[in-house]
Design a binder for these strands. Sequence first.
DNA 1: AGTGGGACCTGTCCGC
DNA 2: TGCGGACAGGTCCCAC
Length: 297
Amino acid sequence: MPELPEVETVKRGLAPTFEGAKISSVDQNRPDLRFPFPENFSKRLSGHRVTTLSRRSKYLLADIDSGDVLIMHLGMSGSFRIENDVLGETPGEFSHARSKNPKHDHVVFHLQTQENTPARIVYNDPRRFGFMDLIARPKLSDHAYFKDLGLEPLGNDLSGETLAQLFAGRKSPLKAALLNQKLIAGLGNIYVCEALWRTGLSPKRVAGSLATGTGKPKQKANELAAHIRSTLEDAIKAGGSSLKDHTQADGSLGYFQHSFAVYDREGEACRKPECSGTVSRLVQSNRSTFYCPRCQT
DNA sequence: AGTGGGACCTGTCCGC
DNA sequence: TGCGGACAGGTCCCAC
């Protein structure tokens, strides 16, 4: 599920329950996900309060009043769901948004919310490419997860100018450059395809070609920056994309996948009104790229 | 240094 | 219906 818009959607979904809540206990149902859990994971969280929930790139961060930051990454298949006392149900019975696959419920945070009601936040991840970690707040930006991360595509740093600088001299295909988290942090396979289509740029084009001169390439860099932003913002507005059975924290579905112009549309008509092309699939860096060879050049 | 490819896992879908 | 292979939203690691 999770590229930047999905992680942002998850953050917004969890915040009302998680922020200000006291963690009464944590069930850690296995020793590792992608990486081992940190030492005393449950112990370092239990009895403490979550102050703020935030996002950096595709990482979800929960500041804990102990001074630790709980790092959560969803990998390819991670999702959270909230379980509440549901009105009209047996008191104490948590029945909201039941897991379809309880054997992949790896972590359960038992909470006492700000409103002093019990709730649980459950992390489910069939492929276990996600992970959690605890890092002291002052050490966060120097930590290996974050120190090499590129700019936030929704922040003020993203512009045609900065894109041109980042891509200058790069011989890799534009697709690979945009997926490189050291340059721009948060884009993934879907939204790179979509942003390139919106801009009319071929994923195969050499990244450095956007950096030269002051005329057309520079203008393309400006357009690309704007389209990256609008693609992500549109997806967040739509509640992210729900592929497979992925849902938002409250169990509802995002619907941006209905707005995909190219992703997973191989063989279908290009959606640009004036274009008669057909969406193609190719493999770059071992990942599928979807694009219209006719209008993306 | 920068790049491409494989590896990590499980689930699902498609063709035989 | 069953089975094998391809493929899936991410990122780390290791050869070139």
